[in-house]
Nucleic acid binder design. Structure first.
Lengths: 147, 147
DNA sequence: TTCACGTATTCACTTATGTGCATATAATAG
DNA sequence: CTATTATATGCACATAAGTGAATACGTGAA
């Protein structure tokens, strides 16, 4: 019983919900630094959130040297499945920025692997590009909203 | 987004999960005192838990004089539906005692309505009966487990 | 071996959340 | 009108949970 309560609790946080959604959207393992960059949350908090999710059985990890790859855990119960469905079926608009950043971040991978780690200048540069783009979009949307 | 986080949070508590399961099992409105007796939790805590669930949109209320009847809110989203499915599909064994007490409590209704309110002697008497029954069952089960 | 790096954890702090007890509010009965 | 009743809420407190900054741990590279 408490395991189920724990699963609800583990998802009752916006950052952790976003992490799960990103893992669902990516359909592949993600490492801490990729999630960190996509969500723009400090690495230690991502690490902690992932620990909570792992303890609750929502995600699992695979170590490869110093790298740790996280993925959605195979559901052991219909309960777990329903929770994943709940998050997976939320409107994509709620996660637009995060998903966009994740895609960009994943595009930096080489041979399907994260090579950039923390404080990547490549990432900062890529981020500047989409930020400029988003500001343009934002301005256009504001102009339209005023009509 | 925060409404969905709120829904997860509202269900991330054992008492509130049980409340929802009871409402699902009963398939009818329940008042605070019925839930209180079934879960053996103080009335003020049940009232507070119900408020949290109502605020989150999980349950809704219908007032009838001084009586307030709570029921599962009609799902406004597949998210909400999936959460209800998750709880509704949990094994019944997790809620055996609570469901049993609820059935007993509901059997005290007259004309389909709760008439006993708080501190009902009828309820205390009924409770003693099933407690004696359960102790017998418990003893039998322990005897079997030792074989 | 030392240094760099990805991730995990500690420390200190703030905020959130749960409970018991007492009280308040609104509706009903006498 | 007063007393009773079902439910809601305030107060005080303890515990849980979240964060930033700093540090620790384990692995890999030089």
């Amino acid at each position: 019983m408490n395991e189920f309560v724990e699963q609800f609790k583990s998802l009752g946080d916006a950052t952790r919900m976003k992490i799960i959604r990103l893992l669902c959207e990516a359909r592949k393992d993600l490492c801490v630094c990729e999630i960190m960059d996509a969500l723009e949350v400090s690495h230690c908090n991502i690490s902690r959130h992932l620990k909570i999710l792992k303890t609750a059985g929502i995600v699992e990890e695979r170590k490869e040297g110093r790298w740790v790859h996280f993925s959605i855990a195979n559901p052991e119960s219909t309960f777990h499945k329903n929770l994943l469905l709940a998050i997976g079926n939320l409107p994509a608009e709620l996660f637009t920025a995060e998903i966009e950043r994740l895609k960009l971040r994943l595009s930096l991978r080489e041979d399907g692997k994260c090579v950039d780690g923390l404080k990547s200048e490549k990432w900062m540069a890529a981020l500047k590009l989409i930020r400029a783009e988003n500001i343009n979009r934002y301005d256009k949307r504001r102009m339209q909203d005023r009509r």
